[in-house]
């Protein structure tokens, strides 16, 4: 009963299937991130949280401690100055974001905070960047409520090192 016939013809196989997908994502901020980004945008203030149990001061602000998992309640204002923990000069273009390469990025420990913040470095020759270097945030004039409301961190001036 089967209607099977041998394939007689020779066709050139299709080697690839191509497709395009456009996706829209929505992530809910929740109370902690919401407050953090509002303060960043409206008051140029960087807010972290202090753990009452282990004493750590943490970024990003979350309802629990990243180190000891205790609930967090205490907000603290952090300095927009800090020190370079580690850095890299990046030559690979990013997938989505158009930062002109090469650029310098760093993990920066803000004064009073126990975990570093990833950000960009600016107003500095690559060869002059050192771990431990003091840096200060340069804020954008128009801020949207994102970490990029800080344009980058630049080396702190001599006098600010002394005043630090």
């Amino acid at each position: 009963m089967r209607h099977i016939t041998e394939i007689s013809s020779k066709v050139e196989p299709v080697t690839f299937v191509e497709d395009e997908l456009e996706l829209s994502f929505r992530y809910w901020y929740g109370e902690h991130y919401g407050r953090f980004y509002a303060e960043l945008r409206d008051n140029r203030r960087i807010l972290g949280m202090r753990c009452e149990k282990c004493g750590s001061v943490l970024l990003p602000p979350r309802p629990y401690c990243g180190f000891c998992h205790a609930p967090l309640r205490t907000w603290v204002e952090l300095s927009d100055k800090g020190a370079v923990d580690t850095f890299s000069i990046v030559h690979t273009p990013n997938a989505k974001e158009l930062i002109e390469t090469p650029y310098a990025c760093a993990m920066i420990k803000l004064d009073g905070c126990d975990v570093p913040l990833y950000h960009l470095l600016g107003e500095v020759e690559f060869k002059d960047i050192l771990t431990g270097m003091r840096v200060t945030a340069v804020w954008e004039e128009v801020r949207k409520g994102a970490l990029r409301d800080i344009r980058y961190f630049r080396p702190s001036e001599q006098r600010s090192i002394r005043s630090d």
């Binding site: 690839f16 299937v17 395009e20 456009e22 996706l23 929505r26 992530y27 901020y29 407050r35």
Partner: peptide
């Protein structure tokens, strides 16, 4: 704070799959 309810991200991806 209410203005920071959610983060919206758009992504356009192109796929090419060997058959």
């Amino acid at each position: 704070r209410d203005q920071f309810i959610c983060l919206e991200q758009n992504m356009k991806l192109k796929f090419r799959r060997p058959t």
